[in-house]
Nucleic acid binder design. Structure first.
Lengths: 131, 131
DNA sequence: AACTATATGATAATCATTACAGATTGAAAA
DNA sequence: TTTTCAATCTGTAATGATTATCATATAGTT
């Protein structure tokens, strides 16, 4: 808990609860997932606080936001850059800790300065494959 | 217009208007973009019809849905598989008509059967670079 | 301990999407 | 061509997620 000191914002009990939840989380929670988990131990927690905190963490580069499912916002507490594999049937998401050296030809680049990339693989997860 | 015959659903004037709009569209419109464009020439058009039609096209594989901006649903009328490059500042999106042979190691794959992939490049577009 | 900018939380507002139900119509069949 | 009916259309209401507001509370500093 001490290692939250250098985030650069006020450390309230609500924020610590959210940080603790994210730190132990292996998945890709939505804002609602965060709220539900934290509200259990912190009944006065409001949705606004969750949104504010997630936004603040995002701005400080402490949290990534995913856009894997159309229209659904998920957060990714996982440290470091990584890619994702999504089951097209049940929407399960797993991290791919493998990186790719991808380049874009001068022509395709359209004058952009490329700063990063993210690969989303689609597939069928083991349990959906059976059906 | 005649080439809409084999889509496999009823061809109403509303749907033809939507199809015509999509066919001539080079970008990545939201449902609202489609509605606004089509409603100009078709004042009785309802939002429900737009959503229904986009959904029907998606189910028939005639239209791809993008999840590039968190929480925002965009549609991609572009034919064939392709990747995208997004400006992190102004959110402009351009198509990358370059394909990549990406593999995932057995271990990382977690038993999934991989069926496809999509790469999202981040960068700064020419006009945002200047600022 | 006092101060102040920041954060919280209850409520209301907004925005996108979906649900509903009655009226309409494309297209297949007669 | 006319008939027929399932599919579709539209206006409205409902839902769900996110953001705005603002009075109150508080973390971190002086």
């Amino acid at each position: 808990m001490e290692h939250y000191r250098d985030i650069g914002f006020k450390l309230t009990p609500q924020r610590i609860a959210i940080l603790d939840f994210l730190e132990g989380h292996k998945g890709h929670p939505t804002a609602e997932d965060v709220y539900k988990a934290v509200a259990r131990r912190f009944p006065t927690m409001s949705f606004t606080t969750v949104y504010n905190t997630l936004q603040a963490l995002k701005e400080r580069g402490r949290l990534a936001e995913l856009s894997i499912e159309p229209g659904i916002r998920r957060f990714d507490p996982g440290r470091g850059p990584h890619n994702h594999l999504v089951c097209t049937r049940c929407r399960r998401i797993v991290d791919i800790h493998q990186s790719y050296r991808l380049t874009v030809s001068e022509k395709e680049r359209a004058g952009f300065a490329i700063t990063g990339s993210h690969v989303e693989f689609q597939g069928l997860c083991p349990s959906c494959k059976k059906k």
